[in-house]
Nucleic acid binder design. Sequence first.
DNA 1: CGTATAATG
DNA 2: CATTCTACG
Lengths: 268, 268
Amino acid sequence: MLRVVTTVNVNGLRAAAKKGFSAWLAATEADVVCLQEVRAEPEQLPAEIREPEGWHAVWAPAAAKGRAGVALLSRQRPERQRIGFGSAEFDTSGRYAEIDLPGLTVVSLYLPSGEVGTERQEEKERFMKEFLVHLLDLRTQAAVTGREVLVCGDWNIAHREADLKNWRANQKLSGFLPEERAWLTRVFDEAGYVDVVRRLHPDTPGPYSWWSYRGKAFDNDSGWRIDYQIATPGLAEQAVGARVERAASYDARWSDHAPVTVTYAAQA
Amino acid sequence: MLRVVTTVNVNGLRAAAKKGFSAWLAATEADVVCLQEVRAEPEQLPAEIREPEGWHAVWAPAAAKGRAGVALLSRQRPERQRIGFGSAEFDTSGRYAEIDLPGLTVVSLYLPSGEVGTERQEEKERFMKEFLVHLLDLRTQAAVTGREVLVCGDWNIAHREADLKNWRANQKLSGFLPEERAWLTRVFDEAGYVDVVRRLHPDTPGPYSWWSYRGKAFDNDSGWRIDYQIATPGLAEQAVGARVERAASYDARWSDHAPVTVTYAAQA
DNA sequence: CGTATAATG
DNA sequence: CATTCTACG
């Protein structure tokens, strides 16, 4: 049996809904969809998105109005759901939600974006520090219970030179700082998670999942791969296909990010 | 010789420019156009509006960005121009500018809108008090120099029951309060100015010049007459025609106000 | 450059 | 209900 998972940063779900997200959702073959940057209370969303027919939805809006916000949609009813990862600072910031499906925990993550030299970069670093501890916990718990874990979302870090178009020009920019890249390496090497899309496509540049709205970034494919599906090794081995659903044109986009979709040959 | 004067609150000239103001300006037969709620610095405007060919422009933006702002466009070069009416509180608020043409002073006025029970209503009242003194001054100066005066603009007050659709329901609303109506009466009776459009159309309901964007106000013609041309008696007697340039449909509008145009059989 | 809020009208 | 501003990304 196959299980298809998509993650996408929608950059404002109300705006995305008007531009094409609803059509995308109606057409997708995914079994689980992880959303980031919902930027709305569920009550502010049209009903067909708040409670889509055939889906179970978990909404984790931020306390601050119009900011962040993650969600998970799954065709199966989750066994359990959880908002936040046990952080006093970040649990009401709309950056983490998880659901348990049979044998599998799926997370929707929106890691803070930073800006070098500002408080926002310090916040990003605090999040990274706390979140790595949680990832280790999650891995341990999963090993004990025999579950797999899949952390989907916008991690706001490109790992390697192949993960963004102009890596040289961006080495001092938040999102490709040496310390951020090293942190992701720890996620893989110390915590033992696997970058699923990179594992399937070891040699491709990208595939990018985010293009700035500024300038001609999209048309030039001057993008970044910052949206990941990060899995425990047992699940990563089941991944049989991955693709980025890049829009056909600038105007066909409904977000500055594109959906990242992976097909798993699941045991459950 | 005829002289045509238009006054219109554009509700954001940058937005209006995109929606049809530019076309309107290119087509108008007015010799003088008074604008209110420009809501932009002249530098933020497209050149064909900032310095329209064949026109002389006077811009009086507010110190607060994106607020108020009045302007005057005239085909003739003004002999003199003035921004503000000598008020410490209001001279940088983008609510008053005047030009002198031969034998005639034209004012573009944007009287503050209020809200009962708030500081904004007190501000409106302070403006009214100061402005009436200025109107008396202006009248006296004009009499001495033998000039006529025309005060065009958004006065944010409907004078009589005929000046708005549902006067009963609006008696406690700012814009139709007894004290505001009484103040306008003083402008006419004590200061000796004449409501030119009402003089030409003594019995018509309206003609309204503002319709809320909310609900079906425009389609139901549920409007207010709050944009006036208020003239010294000698000029008022020369008025030979007046009309409100109401848009053909809701979608054809480029402001929530419509231009109020008067044709004067001028001596000069 | 685009999505949100907030204040204003 | 529309236009702006500001914050954020």
